[in-house]
């Protein structure tokens, strides 16, 4: 007479919609959901990824503090409620797909580096990120060296010479140095269905 199953966490309600609006196929959305379930059940099994679970998945420890992990999480969290639903997770990861349009990658990376979300990247933010990177990777460079790296970067990137890098300048910089966008592409996403084959057991569609 009745459905005795426990209520399912909100999640994969309509894989077709996500498949239409991202670069993923329906099967890939379903496989990605398997990854999402794994990450979102690590601390609290509520079908949502909190910051601790995100850090745990990234670093295999929740003890590590990372400016960039925080920044990435905040950008994924488009609803700004401190947790990631599958929808947010899939849409954000879509940008990292090898076949995602380069313009999306350029925009996303600009937002990542625009720490204060002012529409440009200022010198102080670049310094903060360089210092954080060095600290996170245990590297030690003198302040003088850090300053000279930033000088050189601005010399090249800040073509309008106003002490900040706007989106247009960022775009020109990465077009000259495509490797700066390397961290915006995850080859794993190409093979997501083979990495998480268990999706076929929960699939809502016939694979034709």
């Amino acid at each position: 007479c009745c459905d005795l199953e426990l209520p399912q966490p909100k999640g994969l309600e309509d894989p077709q919609v996500l498949a239409r609006e991202t670069v993923f196929s329906v099967s890939e959305v379903e496989a990605l959901y398997e990854l999402f379930k794994k990450i979102s059940s690590a601390v609290i099994d509520d079908g949502l990824i909190n910051k601790e679970e995100f850090q745990l998945a990234l670093f295999k420890t929740n003890k590590k503090e990372s400016l960039f992990a925080d920044r990435v999480f905040d950008l994924f969290d488009t609803k700004h409620n401190g947790i990631l639903g599958f929808d947010e997770f899939a849409r954000a990861l879509s940008v990292f797909h090898p076949s995602a349009p380069p313009d999306e990658k350029i925009d996303f990376s600009f937002q990542l580096y625009d720490l204060k979300q002012q529409g440009y990247i200022e010198r102080q933010e670049v310094k903060q990120m360089v210092v954080a990177t060095l600290a996170e990777s245990g590297m030690n460079l003198s302040d003088e060296v850090v300053e000279s790296i930033i000088d050189k970067t601005f010399e090249e990137a800040d073509t309008k010479h106003d002490g900040k890098i706007d989106k247009e300048e960022w775009r020109n910089l990465v077009l000259r140095h495509p490797s700066l966008l390397k961290n915006m592409t995850l080859q794993y996403l190409k093979d997501i269905t083979t990495t998480f084959p268990s999706f076929v057991f929960h699939s809502q569609v016939d694979d034709t």
């Binding site: 990372s66 360089v130 996170e136 990777s137 970067t153 090249e156 490797s179 700066l180 995850l186």
Partner: peptide, 25 residues
């Protein structure tokens, strides 16, 4: 290697950007 002197090349190597780890079993 001109890029080795670019701050963003350095920043993009940060572990916090290595989202590939999300896929590690």
């Amino acid at each position: 290697k001109p890029e080795s002197m670019n701050a963003f090349a350095l920043i993009s190597r940060s572990q916090g950007f290595n989202l590939g780890n999300l896929f590690e079993k």
